[in-house]
Design a protein around this nucleic acid. Structure first.
Length: 423
RNA sequence: GCGGGCGUCGCCAAGUGGUUAAGGCAGCGGCUUGUGGCGCCGCUAUUCGGGGGUUCGAAUCCCCUCGCUCGCCCCA
């Protein structure tokens, strides 16, 4: 291998892992289906402008993590760093809201140009849910519960749901000005990153991991004190609904989230088993995104789950477990032809059949049959072909003596063979 | 983008300047040309992520580059 390696942060999904992915994906689909969600698929490339306007120019995602390039027509294009902006665009462009609120899910690869580490790659996969055109608090609770129940169903136990209210746009504007004033008075005490953010995105400073800044912020004005009466009622009611659903949560007043479009409800689901990338699910309400992108006023809420992180957490619960029902052993050219034919016929009735290709000794083929984990060996040799028969032999539990291990069938009586294999 | 660690066969690995690069697992073949999970025997890296350089001589030292990994930042 000379230089033909993967690009940094772009991982292959190998056969040993794909079954785990499929398990998770089918569970995910089942949950979405039960919740009555419809799938939407959008292109993985969009005009750069969509993300600039949708996600916000001062966010880290847009500021330093986008895969942006010019196409041959000189258009600035970007590989989507998240799903919501594209979904919003597609909804507006196709007029879906004319049919009422949309309850949608999506999934697929996302791209962010970052230094990879555990649970973080440059191409990664998200599944997400978006409720567009719904304002009621029960939709917030429902959206959260879909994520929570899904994660629980995959077998993840020690997860933490962190919850906050960012208030209305107005609440947040007033708070932002207050916070900015407060921070500017203490500018010299802030860490470098936070100093840069004071004017562009002061809310993000609340989320700072810097020790000194954290300490300083203990006395800072709190967003919760700036929530309007309506916003407070909303937030209280959401908590009441979650209590009612027995979904545990932790209020985190510093949870701001990195994308500009959130208002009111913001939440994250985190785990202690992911190293420093603790968030497995993140989401919130985005009441003004659709209208800002040129659509009708449409309050909305959604979340995204990182598939790679989900798979890491699910870990050993996803071990490979599929074995063939039967392994077809054959010797001789006529037998080979029959073996292939039988294999296809049995597969057509949904049996999982493995076929040997080696043409080596029966002894070797039996060894391989054992290794495959198959329950039965189907043996087709020259004798069988000439008699129009085939023989099956039970492979597992060789030491348990209970009745015959071998059975002969006519190749014209496949029904009986099938019945035996299924039994 | 910044800072650490790492890169020898599909996997796990020994080797840290000197004849042919250990070993284990897996794979393939044989013992056993038509019957299995054990066992025994044999085969499987002209090459040490890639490219330069130092040297009589390099997987081992130096430089560059690619990738992985851990932390920061941030997020899924």
């Amino acid at each position: 291998m000379t230089n033909l390696k993967n690009l940094r942060g772009m991982a292959d999904l190998l056969p040993a892992q794909s079954e785990g992915w499929q398990k998770v994906e089918s569970l995910v689909r089942a949950h979405f289906c039960r919740a009555g969600l419809k799938e939407i698929r959008t292109p993985i490339i969009e005009k750069t402008e969509l993300f600039l306007r949708g996600i916000g120019e001062n966010t880290d995602v847009v500021g330093k993590e986008m895969y942006t390039f010019e196409d041959r027509g000189g258009r600035s294009c970007t590989l989507r760093p998240e799903g919501t902006a594209s979904v919003a665009r597609a909804i507006i462009q196709n007029g879906l809201l004319n049919n009422g609120p949309q309850r949608l899910w999506y999934g697929g690869p996302m791209f962010r140009y970052e230094r990879p580490q555990a649970g973080r790659q440059r191409q990664f996969h998200q599944i997400g849910v978006e409720f567009v055109g719904l304002d009621s608090v029960i939709s917030d609770a429902e959206v959260i519960s879909i994520a929570w129940e899904l994660l629980k169903d995959i077998g993840l136990n020690d997860l933490t749901l962190e919850l906050n209210s960012l208030g209305s746009n107005e609440d947040r504007y007033i708070f932002k000005e207050n916070l900015k004033d407060w921070l500017l008075k203490r500018f010299d005490l802030l860490d470098e990153d936070s100093q840069k953010r004071v004017n562009s995105n002061p809310l993000r400073i609340l989320d700072s991991k810097n020790k000194d800044t954290k300490k300083l912020l203990r006395d800072a004005p709190s967003l919760s004190d700036f929530l309007s009466k309506e916003s407070k009622i909303r937030f209280d009611y959401l908590q009441q609904l979650l209590d009612n659903l027995n979904i545990p949560y932790k209020i985190n007043n510093n949870l701001v989230r990195g994308l500009d479009y959130y208002s009111h409800t913001a939440f994250e689901i985190t785990s202690d088993h992911l190293g420093s990338q603790a968030t497995v699910c993140g989401g919130g309400r985005y009441d003004s995104l659709i209208s800002e992108l040129g659509g009708p006023e449409s309050p909305s809420i959604g979340w995204a789950i990182g598939m790679e992180r989900l798979i890491i957490l699910a870990g050993s619960k996803l071990l490979d477990s599929s074995f063939p029902d039967a392994y077809v052993i054959h010797r001789g050219q006529k037998a080979e032809q029959l073996a292939l034919k039988i294999t296809c016929q049995l597969r057509s009735v949904n049996l999982i059949i493995a076929l040997d290709y080696s043409g080596s000794s029966f002894s070797k083929q039996f060894k391989r049959a054992d290794k495959s984990g198959a329950k039965w060996a189907i043996v087709i040799g020259e004798d069988e072909v000439s008699k129009g028969q085939l023989m099956i032999k039970k492979l597992k539990d060789i030491d348990k003596e209970e009745g015959p291990r071998e059975y002969i069938f006519s190749i014209h009586e496949l029904d009986q063979l099938i019945a035996k294999l299924i039994a």
